[in-house]
């Protein structure tokens, strides 16, 4: 029995990480990347390298079929060479698509060692660089999960509704490429993914199990990136909302930046198109990244985390938890100067 469950465990390095930034996360949630580094360095006292020479892993292009396998493989090799050059062995890609790409390359290299040699040759020919394969690859959500009980005593707030005293009810959504491609790569495997549920439970919340819990967020790469195809994307996201609605979630938690953006922005679109929201009051269901949630519970300023750039507003959730915030600072710039407020949607309440 014990051996059976070993397949659902995952080794996560303790310290000395090499961080790789995400095109999508830094575009839509730059505050989350800053929060992750702050949590690791200041709350947990860990060493994490933020190398300025990194670049895209090409994952979005690879899965949109505009970047061939050999090219992506060699770009991955260059990123590993940066890690090697800095003396690190534990690779931490911010993006779930990147996480899938790295996991895929490592699996392919293990199955076909000659492919790894090919990557070495390509990289040498292109950049005169060499690389070592990391000892450990973990998604940042894995690391927060690993240290969830170390973070808990530092937290100022719990996932408890202060008006009712009951645990907040949370929908967790895990990016498909976290564990569906290589199931061993995820905590709890693809069958019992526990990376976000573990955080929610540790911090006082209750996880909602609903029929379409594991359905894709609907990104679909070319199905969203090409404007004409976006019906695919919104239809699949809508399927999830329809399925979770009756469980009345207080918020949605994600580990993939793309999923977070779609689950947030498609609520606005559905509201404007169909006059439909998936909460009772017409504000939508707030969608948080795990970095935002961790930061909020630790008492970080919500406007430095970037909650103001979500379309579904988070104030009502913060009120439920009892997190104080200053509405006057919401739309201020970094100097404290007040910027013009964003326009209000026609139907979705903000």
């Amino acid at each position: 029995m014990k051996r059976f469950w070993n397949g659902y465990q995952k080794a996560i390095a303790d310290d000395h990480y090499f961080y790789e930034r995400s095109c999508i996360r830094q575009t839509f949630f730059p505050g989350s990347e800053a929060a992750f580094l702050k949590i690791l360095r200041e709350e947990l006292g860990k060493d994490i390298c933020d190398n300025p020479h990194q670049h895209t892993c090409t994952g979005i292009g690879y899965h949109s079929d505009v970047v061939p396998f050999e090219t992506t493989m060699t770009v991955v090799a260059r990123l590993f060479s940066l890690m090697t050059e800095c003396g690190y062995r534990n690779y931490v890609p911010s993006c779930v698509t990147s996480f899938g790409v790295f996991t895929e390359m490592l699996a392919k290299w293990e199955e076909e060692p000659e492919l790894k040699e090919k990557a070495r040759q390509y990289l040498w020919d292109a950049c005169r660089r060499e690389f070592e394969v990391p000892d450990n690859i973990a998604h940042p959500s894995d690391i927060i999960f690993k240290f969830r009980f170390d973070l808990k005593p530092k937290m100022k707030y719990q996932l408890v509704n202060r008006f009712t005293g009951k645990p907040l009810r949370v929908v967790e959504h895990i990016g498909c490429h976290y564990a569906k491609i290589f199931t061993h790569a995820g905590i709890g495997n693809a069958e019992f993914p526990y990376v976000l549920a573990g955080m929610i439970e540790a911090w006082g919340g209750e996880v909602i199990d609903y029929p379409e819990r594991r359905h894709c967020c609907g990104f679909g790469f070319r199905q969203y990136l090409v404007q004409e195809n976006r019906g695919y994307s919104i239809a699949n996201t809508q399927k999830k909302f329809e399925s979770m609605e009756s469980y009345e979630p207080d918020f949605i938690l994600t580990n993939c930046p793309g999923c977070n953006m779609f689950l947030d922005k498609w609520q606005y679109t559905i509201a404007e198109m169909e006059h439909k929201t998936y909460d009772k009051e017409g504000y939508g269901i707030p969608v948080l990244t795990y970095e935002e949630l961790t930061g909020l519970l630790l008492g970080y300023d919500p406007w430095s985390l970037g909650l103001q750039i979500h379309q579904v507003q988070c104030e009502r959730l913060m009120d439920k938890i009892g997190i104080p915030y200053n509405p006057a600072e919401k739309y201020c710039d970094f100097t404290g100067r007040r910027l013009p407020s964003p326009e209000k949607p026609e139907f979705l309440k903000v």
Binding site: Q26, P30, G31, E33, A34, K265, S304, L305, P342
Partner: peptide, 25 residues
């Protein structure tokens, strides 16, 4: 080209140079 991103994206897109430093970017 991305109307689905809503008015908040338009606002962020317009003021990103002033907001990004606040988000640690």
């Amino acid at each position: 080209y991305h109307p689905e991103q809503g008015p908040i994206w338009r606002w962020y897109h317009e003021h990103i140079a002033d907001i990004a430093p606040k988000l640690g970017a």
